[in-house]
Design a protein around this nucleic acid. Structure first.
Lengths: 248, 248
DNA sequence: ATCCAAAGTATCCGGCGGACACAAGATAGC
DNA sequence: GCTATCTTGTGTCCGCCGGATACTTTGGAT
């Protein structure tokens, strides 16, 4: 940072043991990748709202305006973060057993990724640029339905509802939304308030009571199961000439 | 606003035609309701990110700090906005025909509300306070499953996946997420980019091609249908002693 | 008429995204 | 080897944000 005006002084200080190593440690170059990596690390740890240009820059020992040499604005940083965080989409072609194991595998992988980066649901709302890897996940999911009798639009809609369930499970996990399905602390608070007005919420309280001994948080698996059941029913209906008794 | 120290002067100015009407137009009192109503109007028109304390205050002809006499902070304003925007939950008890028409009715009402206030998905992420009317919508949905053999936890999870689909449809509608399902403009842009790398996205392009003559945006109805099919299948399975051939 | 609590205002703060002008270091041409 | 240019990072400034604090105004109750 300063190595010219104190060139002479630096030598003296070094000789007299005032400094152990020459100042000029290489200082790796600033790149979009390094910036985004630092920002992702910050977002993973503190949430996306804690990520500001200033703080990212500081974590890289650089002024905030230096970032603008590599990114045109903050939206672009977020877009790059997303693209980097979602990672490369999986190849499902090796998975045997038809569409269901394939899409289940895909869903678990995607859920894992989103859980590793809990800020993704927040960052992916609103109008924004979408990168090729993100699209690649959709491509990957569509491939799971190869060989099914679903129409193109139906495959897309199926992937949509599945992605939505993943996003939504993550939204619920990091928030007070649907708190009774997530953590005990919040559940206690809201539960208390509901119990105080118990006559207003009889069904919720009855359901919670009934659920007391159920597995802690099954909403992810339950929702996934129902969506896949629905798809299975549609696919079967399409596949057989004489349709199954249609689900009422 | 000022009517004591310039009482005499005011009369003179009025007599001499310097002021057309007495200053003291009633100036309706500031209330939480008026504030939230103004903020909702702004959010509906410009999105939640356009809502700032300053702008809300200005639209009420008041300084921003006046709002803090009625609300402790912005999060509270947003919470009140949400509670007001979602409105009173519906009473489904009059709907005949079992759980399915009831929950379908509920879903359409909820979707309508969320469409009228497109900022709701954005405002309802993250840890936050939840009000009684919002909970009331869950209560209402749960009542739709009265008489079904679902367990309490399952009813809650069913409502969760349905709410999620509503939220997610709205997220998609206002954004570039899953753009091929929403508006033509974005679809054109992304479509162009995908076509340029057509070998990377064969399934998407094939599906879009196949979907060219399909109804414009069916993702809401399709997802809802699959979820309900899944639930129907589970309910039937529970209801009959000899289980149906289980969906593969 | 006076006092007082409630409601609204004025001013200030740190942090935000970002525009713009500038400085220093690398690099290329001669 | 010297100089001009181009790249990369810096310093300063702006308007807007949410919010703390101290103030003035105002409408009633006494």
């Amino acid at each position: 940072m300063a190595d010219q005006d104190d060139a002479g002084r630096a030598g003296a200080e070094f000789l007299w043991g005032l400094r152990e190593r020459p100042v000029k440690q290489p200082r790796l170059a600033l790149t979009v990748d390094r910036i985004a990596t630092a920002a992702i690390e910050m977002a993973d740890a503190e949430g996306i709202e804690g990520v500001s240009m200033q703080r990212v820059a500081a974590s890289l020992d650089v002024t905030k305006m230096a970032l603008y040499r590599h990114l045109t604005n903050k939206a672009e940083l977020v877009a790059v973060m997303i693209e980097m965080a979602v990672g490369d989409p999986p190849d499902l072609s090796a998975i045997e057993g038809g569409w269901r194991p394939r899409i289940e595998h895909w869903a678990e992988l995607m859920r894992g990724t989103w859980r590793r980066h809990p800020w993704l649901p927040t960052a992916t709302v609103g109008d924004r640029a979408i990168g090729p890897r993100e699209i690649g996940w959709t491509e990957s999911a569509l491939s799971a339905f190869d060989g099914t009798p679903l129409l193109g639009a139906e495959k897309i809609d199926a992937v949509f509802v599945l992605s939505g369930h993943i996003r939504n499970s993550q939204v619920a996990a990091l928030s007070g939304t649907q708190p009774w399905t997530s953590d005990r602390r919040t559940r206690g608070d809201i539960g208390e308030l509901m119990r105080r007005n118990h006559n207003q919420f009889p069904h919720i309280l009855a359901a919670l009571d009934d659920a007391r001994n159920a597995p802690a948080d099954n909403s992810w698996a339950f929702g996934l199961e129902q969506i896949l059941r629905g798809l299975a029913s549609l696919i079967d209906e399409r596949a057989t000439t004489k349709p199954l008794r249609r689900a009422k």
